[in-house]
Computed example of a mutant assay.
Amino acid sequence: MTNGNARIWHVSDDLAARYAEGVLPEPDAWSLEKHVEGCGGCAATVSEAVRGTAAGTVLAQVRDAVLASMPPAQAAPAVRRGSPRRPPVPHRFARLLWAAGPAVRGAWLPAVLVVAAGALALAYGTGYPGTRALLLAVAPVVPVAGVALSYGPHADPLHEVTAATPGGGLRLALTRTVAVLAVSLPLLTLTGLLLPASGAPAAAAWLLPGLALALGSLALASFVGCRTAALLTGGGWLLAALGPVAAEPGGAAGALAEQLSRCFDGVGAQSAWASAAVLSAVLVTARRPVYDRPLGR
């Protein structure tokens, strides 16, 4: 497996043959699968070995059926990638975009844009004074919902297969969580900056709470599943933030701003959110093996 350097190795013909025959020990098979994600030459070697087995014939038939169902513009690049004469070239950005998956596509991203546009319309279209406070109350729930919608069997039809690969499990969950945060944090914070303050906390005050709730939801998902965890963390936050305000309907905007100031403003409050984020990250790390199983219940 090595080429004279302990840190650099490539798949030999014998190793590829044992992998194709299914007799390679599981740790070695996982290592090989991880290696071929970034090595086009070795991927071609393994692909050629698999084509020489009985399973290779079945895989070739499946591939031909898939290509036949694709539009010509998509099928042509796929044929070139599958050609044994031209080893596939890894595209890290494309793999990263695939890993981000539902976090940056589907209904969730338009929903974030609707929240931002709705807040601006409410502030400048109707003149409602408590728009920033309302946005800050809802904003921490947005990443939680994004994490719930971007990971699990409901988000990925191949979730069970993907989770069993070296690039799946916790790594995939964290990749999609980062994608959710990378979209929602700057977009909603910028929207908050464009809204009148009206006594509400700063537009960036929700960043640590949003991170803590997203990580807390991911940690809780290892016990109760993604959707249930999102309901508990997101619903719990909304109840804590909006519950006291319901008792004062006459001055709801001012009461909400005061409630959020207690939750967000000051070193003590932000330190508490930072501690919650760290503890959640520690719990996620400790529960790492659980993420190899479906978490969508």
Rank of each mutant, 00 (worst) to 15 (best):
A252V: 04
L190Y: 10
T189Q: 05
C263D: 02
A155E: 03
A229V: 03
A212C: 01
L172Y: 01
P209W: 15
A253T: 11
T228S: 12
G268W: 15
G234E: 04
C226H: 06
P157N: 07
A163C: 04
L218V: 10
A205L: 07
A230N: 00
P249Q: 01
L279H: 15
G234H: 06
A281M: 03
A155W: 02
G243W: 09
P244G: 10
A205V: 06
G251V: 09
S217V: 02
L279V: 13
A272V: 07
E248F: 06
S222V: 09
L190C: 09
A276H: 13
T175Q: 03
T233I: 14
A253N: 12
F223C: 10
D156I: 02
A219P: 14
E258V: 14
S271R: 06
L170W: 06
L211H: 07
P244E: 05
A197L: 13
L218A: 15
T191I: 11
R176F: 01
V278Q: 06
A276Y: 15
A197E: 15
S271W: 13
G167P: 05
G251R: 12
G234T: 04
C263A: 09
P186I: 12
L213S: 03
P209R: 05
A257Y: 08
S271G: 13
A281G: 08
D156C: 05
S184V: 12
T233C: 12
C263R: 07
L195V: 08
V161S: 15
D156K: 02
T189C: 10
A214I: 01
L195Q: 14
L172F: 01
A202N: 04
W206Y: 11
P244T: 07
H154T: 08
T228C: 04
T189N: 03
G168T: 11
H159E: 12
A200D: 04
L260I: 05
A277E: 05
L231R: 03
V178K: 00
A246T: 15
T191C: 07
D265H: 14
E258S: 15
F264I: 00
S198W: 14
A274V: 08
P201D: 04
E160I: 15
T233E: 00
V278G: 11
L218Q: 11
A205P: 03
A179F: 06
A197W: 15
D156G: 03
A202Y: 02
A230H: 00
L207Q: 02
V178H: 00
W237F: 09
A212W: 14
H154S: 12
G216Y: 13
S198A: 12
L242T: 05
A155N: 06
A163E: 05
G250M: 01
L239S: 06
L211M: 09
S184N: 02
A253M: 10
Q259R: 10
